[in-house]
Design a protein around this nucleic acid. Sequence first.
DNA 1: GTTAGGG
DNA 2: CCCTAAC
Length: 698
Amino acid sequence: MESDHLDPTEFVTGAYMVLQKRLDYGFNGYQVPATPRATRSARRRGTVRKRIEENQMCAFDLLATVAGKLLLNTESSPSSSNTSSEKEHCTNDNQDCQDGKNVLKMEPYDQGSYDRTSLVSELVLQGHDENISSKESLLPPNDDHSGFTSTTTSNCSERLGSDKLVNGKIKSEMGSFVSKIEVGSSGDCKLDGEVKTLVNDTGKVLTGNDANVCSSEDPVVWDGEPPALVSSDSSTKVPFCGDHIPQKSRPASRDDIKVVSRDDDENSSGCTHPNTSTKYFKRVPRIGDRRIRKILASKYWKVSPKLKDETFSNPDGDIKPIYRSRKDLYKRQRSQMNIPFKKRKLFNRGSGLKSDGGINGDGFFDSPEDGIGDGPGSCPKLRGTGKSSSIAGQRASFQSRDSHVKLRIKSFRVPELFIEIPETATVGSLKRTVMEAVTEILGGGLHIGVLLQGKKVRDDNKTLLQTGISHHNQLDALGFTLEPSPSQNPPPICPGDSPRLLPGDPPLPLARYTPNPTGDRLEISDVTPEPHAASLGNFVESDHDSAPSPSNMSANKSTTDSKALVPVPAMSVEALAAVPMHRKSKRSEIAQRRIRRPFSVTEVEALVLAVEKLGTGRWRDVKLRAFDNAKHRTYVDLKDKWKTLVHTARISPQQRRGEPVPQELLDRVLSAHAYWSQQQAKQQLKQHHQPDTTCLLL
DNA sequence: GTTAGGG
DNA sequence: CCCTAAC
């Protein structure tokens, strides 16, 4: 099942960026491919750099760049799975290493063989806001850190300092992310983040206008955290709010394109606007981040398989694990990522908090598409390039040859999101549910769609110039969208809920989150199990379909956008055809872990009472007697609770956690336990002796 | 389907 | 709480 995800043959090439999503609880075990690691490392530094030929950048490249950017933003920390080799690397390093189990190894980018699939080849430490950065910079600003600037292998030490950042960044980002999502019946969800893409030939630095960036338009949404900046500039500092990472300078090379992602730490919010919902965000992000981490790892793996090989001298070391038996993987996962694992599961349960009785969650939030206010990339802003004065904004007079296009992606539109949750669920659970849904979408395979003048740009092979995306053009018309991968994430169909689905429509990017009434399952159904080819065919045919739901249409602007979306470029199609992806998600089959519901004192009392009466071997009876109405308490739960109660009663009060249970009850527990244990022993003795005696007698 | 016990 | 063996 999940092992499918590990299939090495599942390469995604070209713009067909598949963000592998790890939905399967219980099996998070994607091995982190070498490439992913490198990528992650890069992310940590906050900058990713890619070398490409100027003006030769084709739509595909652009897509790849953007996709990479997106990933950077979402990724929070290193994936949990690591290979032994990595560990060795980190041995000396304490937390950093642990935290980022996987250390990235950066290899010099091979110019000669530029591989599109190699989304991220080099990492560059991102510049930060001088004002802010100074306080927390771990490294001397501008100092050339081999780790940061060079493409050499990074080790744990390099990451010192960046880890923190990463975490912080993620948190805030995730928070923003969540807040931004709109839940509507047919709407699209927009992932608002600003992605600045600067492609410029000068090789100069593009400053992400820090202050601007931080306080950028959507303070609330992003917390002043624009995701990324792509610039050709190599050594410039990009000031960012809350950026702790010291900037790295490196030799500027005009051919390089950098993707700089801003890292903000939790405090960064202060930089921009007070975040009222900080509290919430802080919590969620943690989980989300871990999940994403994994997801990203797999994504990268898919994206740049080649890179992987090149990067690692001993691919086997890293790769082998991938072929391990599922069992092994599973175990590894469990042991290594125990906590995250659990958390993930918990989170997936959309409605953890439904009232006891209210199991039927009839009410659900239908996610209406939200009209997306501003089209993605609607406002490409050009940051003055500090150094590259030559390029004065978009209007640079340069000819296409050396011209770079500077893009600023303010937001991505996220495919339709469906959420169903019981009315009794708490707002918190709703948030988590939405978060999960979004995460699923993001992780489940995305395509970046490019819209120009409301039209989707299909040909990935065309250069930007040919396409009309040039620095002197109106970049306002340029938009990006996140699109689910047709084959991979077949949109679940919600019976009746999604009127918008028209027959013949291609699979909508619809993810439906339905915390089951039974409450324990979150399910994203795959409607289209068909082979890739089929999906693609379908997909290709309907350009507009992948477009967000009709409801979107209502929104003037969005309408065009949606229609224009082109999920999978022709090229991608070919690639896919060549290398079909085998992954069929089976997540629907996977049950979610039930939410934890601590026993209340009242419940404990009831349990004790029942056990006192019935004994410890009749849990079903106990259940019927004392917890018949508590649907969520199974007899196994009661048995387990009794077990823990006994344990609790035996340990010192200081060691007890959770809601304190009255000592009186605990005493009763012990006595009852002792009593029934004795009874049980007697019974056994009887049984043992009786047969003997009977035998003997006979 | 229940129990019991390890995880 | 989950998972499984054993019944």
